[in-house]
Simulated scan of single mutants.
Amino acid sequence: MTAQVSARRTGSAQRSNAIVLLLVATAILGGGVAVAIVGGYRINLTPSEPLGLWRIAALDRVVSAGDLVFICPPQTPVIREARERGYLRSGTCPGGVAPLIKTVIAVPGQHVDIGAGVAIDGRPIAFSDLAQHDGKGRPMVPYSGGAVPAQSVFLHSPFRSSYDSRYFGPLPVSGILGLAQEVLTYAP
C-alpha cells in the first residue's frame, strides 16, 4: 500500500512540475513578444512581403514613393469589411488589426488610374492586376482611382492577392508607423 501512495505522490508531483514549467515557458514567451512589440519588431506571416521578423524604423522625413512602410489603416467601412472577410490579421492598430507592410507607389497630387491594373501618372505598375474575386469567390471591388489627396499615400504589394490600395484606396500618412526594415526574413 505504501508503494501505491508513493507512486501517486510522485505522479502528482510530476504533473505539478510540468504545469509550473509550462506556465514559466508561457510567461517567458509572452514577455518576449511584448518586449518585441514595444521595441518596434513585428512578425510578418502574410505573403505580401517576405515572411519573418521585421523592424519599424523611424521615418524622420516626408514619405516618398518607393518607401516600404508599416501603416495602420483607418477604421473605414471598407477596412471593417476587409477585417470581417479575414483579409486583415489581428494586431495592435485601432480596430484590432495588424499593421500593414506595403510600398508607397503614389503620394499627394499623383493620379491613380485603375483598370485591369494600376497606373500612376500614366505609368503602369508591374504586378498590379486586380482580382475580380477573393479566394472564397466573393467579388472584389476596386478603388475608383483619381488624385491622391493631401496627407495620403497609395500603397501596393506585388503579391497578386495582396489587399492594398487597389481595393481600399489611399490611406492617411498619419497611420504610418515607420519604415519597414527586414531583420530575419524568408521569401518563398
Rank of each mutant, 00 (worst) to 15 (best):
L23V: 12
R123Y: 07
Q151I: 02
I105W: 07
D121Y: 02
Y87L: 15
S48V: 05
I71D: 00
G66W: 12
G178K: 04
Q151M: 04
Q151W: 03
A126Y: 00
G39K: 10
A27T: 15
S16V: 11
T185H: 11
A57S: 12
Y167L: 03
G109A: 14
I19C: 08
L51V: 10
T46A: 15
V5T: 12
S12D: 10
R85S: 03
V141E: 11
R85D: 00
A36R: 06
A98Q: 14
A58W: 00
V153R: 01
D129H: 03
P94K: 15
E84S: 00
Q75G: 07
F70T: 07
G66C: 04
N44C: 08
I43F: 00
S144L: 13
F154Y: 02
E49Q: 15
F168M: 00
Y41F: 09
L155D: 02
A65W: 12
A131I: 10
V141P: 01
L171M: 10
T2I: 11
A57W: 05
S48C: 06
G52P: 10
P170T: 13
G66L: 08
Q181E: 15
Y186N: 09
V104M: 01
V38G: 05
T103S: 10
A36N: 02
R15W: 02
R83Y: 02
I105R: 01
P50K: 08
Q151A: 15
Q181N: 15
G115E: 06
N17S: 05
E182H: 05
S174M: 04
L21D: 09
G11L: 14
G96H: 11
V97C: 08
